[in-house]
Structures are given as structure tokens and as C-alpha cells.
């Protein structure tokens, strides 16, 4: 393929895009929307995964003692907890420390909790860490049987619930994106069909002059690819700006909720979206090119 040919292909593709200006924009718009949905749901899934990992690795057992327990009995309970099989560490958290922790997790919004010091209803507790997260439920059961223990709480089910939610988000995202992609493919197909029709006369002459199918088809194919890639690039730009804005806000506001700020995976998503746009464009243009450019 010579440089002259390549110039010809691109010039023809862009002049067609210009000729079908509004239809081109409509196709790009639909691609942008569908890729935005896909990108957002991918980001939601990634963040949920990350959150689940965080929760899983920091599962602690909160052990609450009976209310009428004496100070010495409380200390004794702490010592006993250390002896339970599978326990790694035991830490005493007084009710005022618990409030302090809660405030910390609210980050910048911690003023919301001001004034609670006088009416602090948070109980004293022991925070028990296990040697391994898989031991959590077993250890928690054992502790619950111990004398002086009122209640045991740990993140049982939270991780599972989170995963269930993300699988829903993922399913909904996939279905929505599939529908939108089909719409985008058909809109591109329409755009390309229009530009084939508007150049029917020229195509006929090209066939008489001995142009190959390939030569006639490439500009239309390129036109679809340009539409798809442009849609991909715009959606990635929007997603990038929107997501990073969100990350900045959320990460500074809530210390307990940290969004994935960047990294390889996020970059893969962005590159993938642009590629998917190009693929949608290629598929969309190959339908009418095959159907209407028979020689």
C-alpha cells in the first residue's frame, strides 16, 4: 500500500464524514454513551473488588463484654482472649477511643459527630485479630461461648453481600452495553450506507476503471473506524476527568472509602474502551460495505 493510496483513503473517508455531518455526530454520540456506561460499570466493579479485599484483610472480631462486668473481670477476659486458638492480637478499645476512631473515619466531615462526647453510647470492646481471615468465624464462635461475653461481631456476610451487589452491577452493565453497542453498530452502518449511496456514481465508475474491491471499500471501512475511535477517545476523556474528580473528592472526604486512584488496571480500561470503539466502528461499517459494494 503506497503512501499515495493511504492519503487517498483518508481524504475520502474524511470528506464522507463531512458530507454526513449530523449522522456522523449521532453515531459518535451513541458510541460515547455506550462506552461511558461500560467504563463506569467497569470502574464500579474494580472499586468494589478492591473494597472487598480491604474488608477481607481487615476483618476483626469485636468482642463486647456484659454491661455489669467488673474492671478486673474485664482485664481477665482480655487475657483469656489472647489464649484462644487462632488469635493473633487483642486490643482494648474504650468507649471514648471508639468514638475517636469513628470520627477519624469520617475525615473532613468529622464535625458531624461533635458533641457526642457527653452522650457517648459506644461500649468498651476488645478488637481481636486472627492469624488468618479464614479462622474468623470459628474463633468468633468460640469467643461467644466464653463467660462475660455479651456479644461478638465481625464482618460476616459483608464481603459476600458486596460481591453479590457488584455482580449485579456487572450484569446490568453488560446488558446495557450490549444493547447500546448494537444500537451504535446500526447507527454507524446507516451512516456508512448513506455515504455509499451518495457516492454510488463514483463507485460505478471506479469499477469500470478497474479499481479493486479493496480499494473501493477501504475509505468506507476507515470512515466507520474513525467514528468508533473518535467516540472511544471522547468517552475516555470524559470518564478520565469525571472519575479523577470523584476520586479526589471521595478520597479526601472519607478515609474509610478509598477509590482506586490510578494504575495499570485503570489504564487498561481506558485503552480497552478506545479499542472497543474502533471495533464497533469496524463492525458497523463492514455490514453495509459487504452488502452494498458488490462488484
Amino acid at each position: 500500500m503506497s503512501l499515495d493510496n493511504l492519503t487517498y483513503y483518508f481524504r475520502e473517508a474524511f470528506s464522507s464524514l463531512h458530507r454526513n455531518f449530523w449522522l456522523s455526530w449521532a453515531s459518535i454520540g451513541v458510541i460515547i454513551i455506550s462506552l461511558l456506561i461500560l467504563g463506569s460499570s467497569a470502574l464500579v466493579v474494580i472499586n468494589a473488588r478492591c473494597l472487598a479485599d480491604q474488608i477481607e484483610s481487615s476483618v476483626e472480631i469485636s468482642v463486647f463484654a456484659e454491661e455489669d462486668i467488673s474492671e478486673s473481670e474485664l482485664d481477665e477476659l482480655g487475657d483469656k482472649l489472647k489464649l484462644v486458638n487462632g488469635v493473633d492480637s487483642v486490643e482494648f478499645v474504650s468507649s471514648s477511643e471508639a468514638l475517636e476512631k469513628l470520627k477519624e473515619s469520617f475525615g473532613e466531615k468529622k464535625e458531624a459527630l461533635d458533641g457526642l462526647e457527653e452522650r457517648n453510647t459506644l461500649p468498651d470492646s476488645y478488637q481481636v485479630k486472627t492469624v488468618d481471615t479464614s479462622l474468623v468465624s470459628g474463633v468468633a464462635e468460640n469467643i461467644e461461648q466464653m463467660q462475660g461475653v455479651e456479644k461478638v461481631r465481625y464482618g460476616h456476610g459483608v464481603v459476600e453481600k458486596l460481591m453479590k451487589m457488584t455482580s449485579w452491577a456487572r450484569m446490568a452493565g453488560v446488558v446495557l452495553v450490549l444493547l447500546m453497542s448494537i444500537a451504535a453498530v446500526f447507527l454507524i452502518a446507516t451512516t456508512i450506507r448513506m455515504s455509499i449511496f451518495s457516492r454510488q456514481y463514483e463507485i460505478e465508475i471506479m469499477k469500470y476503471l478497474g479499481a479493486t474491491n479493496f480499494f473501493i471499500r477501504v475509505p468506507f471501512f476507515l470512515e466507520g473506524m474513525i467514528l468508533g475511535t473518535a467516540g472511544g477517545l471522547v468517552s475516555v476523556a470524559l470518564l478520565f476527568l469525571g472519575y479523577h474528580g470523584l476520586v479526589d473528592k471521595v478520597n479526601s472526604a472519607f478515609s474509610f472509602l478509598q477509590l482506586v486512584g490510578g494504575g495499570q488496571l485503570i489504564n487498561y480500561i481506558f485503552v480497552g474502551l478506545v479499542l472497543l470503539g474502533a471495533i464497533i466502528g469496524a463492525v458497523g461499517s463492514s455490514i453495509p460495505v459487504k452488502r452494498f459494494l458488490k462488484v
Binding site: 499515495d4 493510496n5 487517498y8 456514481y201 465508475i205 480499494f215
Partner: peptide, 24 residues
């Protein structure tokens, strides 16, 4: 005749060479 209305005489004639992949 079937000439392309938006191309001048030179480009119409050169079109034969162009579509068969000949260089400028």
C-alpha cells in the same frame, strides 16, 4: 461520458491511474 462533476479534467483522467494504485 460519466465524468465526475466535482473533479477537474486532470483529476478525472488521473482517476484511472489513482484507482489502480498508481502514484502521484
Amino acid at each position: 461520458f460519466r465524468l465526475l462533476p466535482k473533479k477537474n479534467v486532470f483529476d478525472n483522467v488521473g482517476f484511472t491511474l489513482q484507482v489502480t494504485g498508481k502514484g502521484r
